[in-house]
Design a protein around this nucleic acid. Sequence first.
RNA 1: GGAGCCAUCGCCAAGCGGUAAGGCCGCAGCCUGCAAAGCUGCUAUCCCCGGUUCAAAUCCGGGUGGCUCCUCCA
Length: 466
Amino acid sequence: MFIYDSVQKTKLLLEPIKAGEVSLYICGPTVYDDAHLGHARSSLSFDLLARTLRMVGYKVIMAKNFTDVDDKIIKKIKETGKSLQEITSYYIDRYLKEMEALHIGRADIEPKATESLDAMTAMIQKLMDLGFAYRIGSGDIYFDTSRDSHYGELSGRIGDDAESQKRIEFVEEKKNPKDFVLWKACKTGETICFEAPFGLGRPGWHIECSAMIDAHFHGSGQYSIDIHGGGADLLFPHHENEAAQSRCATGHELAKYWMHNGFVQIDGAKMSKSLGNSFFLKDALNVYDGEILRYYLIGVHYRNDFNFNEDDLQVAKKRLDKLYRLKNRLAPISLSIPSEEFKKALLDAMSDDLNISVALSVIDAMIASANEKLDLNPKDKALKSETAANIRLIDELLGFGGKIPTEYFQIGIDEELKRETERLISKRTEAKKAKDFAASDAIRNQLDAMGIRIMDTSDGTTWEKL
RNA sequence: GGAGCCAUCGCCAAGCGGUAAGGCCGCAGCCUGCAAAGCUGCUAUCCCCGGUUCAAAUCCGGGUGGCUCCUCCA
């Protein structure tokens, strides 16, 4: 298995700390609003990674956190009058449901910041004891970046210039502009306060992941976990800061490999709230089935930017349709085992830093070949059961193709329309039998106007919703 | 101001020094009452200019264009 390490900026052979086992920590969402397509893409990227690692034979332990204490959540509390718990549990619940719709597997460990306070305060205390952190007059505790000689190496930002320092929030008492907050002391009027040995307050953002990783993974003498992942925007400052804290508190590096996924863009620009072009996952799921959305969103290599476009989404659906049409020719059949050649080609592609494009082309080739053989010999049972097993493999590795074809093609069809469709089809079959092609073609046009496409096969007429 | 990523057929998209995968669209054919579906065949020398090499889309230098990070962000 090869993966691209975004710190070393090169593709590397994955050599886990512990043979046969891969520990994975993914930066999850801050739960103050609905998930957008960018969250989906990030989750999808690491879902593919976990699935591939498992199929290649690794035991995978994946953690993905929920940031449920944060300034934006506090802002939401003020705006809505709801409690922190109400807000965060609502958005966590929605997040998980939406990710499920995209067939994204759950992480093995899903820590929440509010449930990891002991780990965080312990790490902050340790950093203070070791002289890596200091407290200012307000009670806030900062990490002293000047004490970490490796600070800046992760993101390659060693000599930051004046212009970039201007952008950092100015706090007079900070020793160094790059120093970041570990603990925000409770100020007058603030209600979201937690107890800590150093007083009431709440944790800074960066400490969360470091503390959770420390709490949940044993690691080795050199690294806490194998792979740390997240969106490309997290490399700096978030991951730089995490790495610094962990290095100073534990004496070893946080992760052996770092992986970052690219952005989802809308009309060539980064999707973000401030630009007013964010696309919520819930809105997309309202219009498109989760499986189609999944197929579309994984279609571009995870490190590249992804330009969201509804036309391209339709193209993705067409491609997925072909898989289901093949599956439709198979059923009902018992599975045998997948073709060795197919499995190898698929795994070879995904083992090469998740080369999804090659993987999808391998699938297309398998579909074409199976269709061709079935055209020649429609009753080839061995081929059918092997093909069915191939599709089962695709579902396991890539997370699509698992539905029953008729369900897939009839998503969003109500019972009434379904009955009407079937009634018209049998009427058309009668007309065809009587060689009344004018009548049968009229019915076909009528169905077409209803959004139903029909196909005559040797086994009768099948139909799909357009 | 600093740091980085990207640029491949009309569109989407692989490629990681050895002579351009795949999908959509289009065209031709097989199949079909006609379609649809399926199958077969056809369609690019890789933004520009230099350089390294027996060999470059792939490496180096210089342009041009797009995006991102340096502030919360997947």
